[in-house]
């Protein structure tokens, strides 16, 4: 396969079981379009999915894929990419998966700056377990486990990424099909860890962070005269708090991906059928 890859080639024959209207449909479509637009095909693409409604994405897409355990998708994707740098690696999961149980990994995956794309389908709720508060839920958002709301400030994922030394930080919205695909495409093309927080509304359990809310409140950076290469500008917008943005907030033009900083460029899958030449030197070292 090559240039004639269409985004539908990335679709599996499993029918999604997401609720009708779920934001995850749009998020996934944009990912497939971006993969096709950047010249990838299912045989050179590896998708790692977390656990959650969002995590089902691995099943609905067609590519090499692993649907792992809750919160650990980023380490898996990192391992895949380091073992075979020729693969296009895309990691996707929910806000609970990425910012709660997997938060520790998020910080370190960002620091490593491995050349992969991380898409968080942020619905500000635990969808799969039927509506508990997530780390991005609003302070007063009432759920079955937080009848008065969490009464703690939500995590600001973009700020967390920035503080961890991110080289690419973007935010997107699943229902703005064109912009969303475009932003994911930029993340794929970024030389390093391309992080995109995608608002993917949960129509069943979250009646606050709805399509209407995002449509009305999101400011498209394309129309806001924003320079994504200006760190101070990015920092200001990320920490602002009263506005939410869509688009690439920050991209470090000087980003050097892990492969280059660590000299990991070989495909590790190819090994001889006995000990490699030079192995006896390892023994001699112990003289």
């Amino acid at each position: 396969m090559s240039s004639d890859v269409r985004f539908t080639d990335f679709k599996s024959d499993k029918q999604p079981t997401w609720c009708p209207g779920c934001g995850d449909f749009g998020t996934m479509n944009g990912m497939m379009k971006a993969l096709a637009n950047t010249g990838n095909d299912p045989d050179n693409t590896f998708v790692v999915a977390g656990i959650g409604c969002s995590g089902k994405i691995g099943t609905y897409m067609h590519s090499y894929a692993l649907h792992g355990v809750h919160g650990r998708a980023l380490p898996v994707g990192t391992g895949v990419k380091l073992a075979n740098p020729d693969l296009e690696v895309m990691v996707a999961g929910g806000d609970g998966d990425g910012y709660s149980i997997g938060a520790g990994h998020f910080v370190h995956a960002v620091r490593r700056n491995v050349d992969l794309t991380y898409v968080v389908m942020d619905n500000r709720i635990y969808g799969l377990t039927k509506g508990q508060a997530s780390p991005t839920s609003r302070e007063d958002f009432e759920t079955s486990t937080t009848p008065e709301g969490p009464q703690q400030p939500p995590v600001n994922p973009l700020a967390l990424a920035l503080a961890s030394g991110a080289t690419f930080i973007a935010q997107s919205f699943s229902s703005d099909a064109l912009r969303h695909a475009e932003i994911i495409e930029q993340a794929i093309e970024h030389d390093g860890f391309g992080f995109v927080n995608v608002f993917s509304p949960c129509v069943t359990f979250n009646d606050v962070d709805t399509y209407d809310y995002f449509r009305d409140s999101l400011v498209d950076l394309k129309e806001a005269d924003h320079d994504p290469h200006d760190y101070d500008d990015a920092k200001e917008k990320i920490l602002e708090g009263d506005k939410e943005y869509m688009g690439v907030l920050w991209q470090d033009e000087e980003s050097v991906p892990y492969h280059q900083t660590h000299g990991v460029t070989e495909d590790m899958t190819d090994i001889p059928d006995g000990a490699a030449d030079g192995s006896m030197d390892l023994v001699r070292e112990f003289y």
Binding site: R72, V76, T78, A83, N84, H262, M268, I271
Partner: peptide, 29 residues
């Protein structure tokens, strides 16, 4: 020297998943 790499993970939850990822890619891990 043999074309491989060591990653110091942030914890063992990550270590085994990193190793799993590399193995899925086809490396002995």
């Amino acid at each position: 020297e043999f074309g491989g790499h060591v990653v110091q993970a942030e914890d063992e939850l990550s270590a085994i998943n990193l190793a799993l990822g590399a193995a899925r890619a086809g490396a002995r891990s």
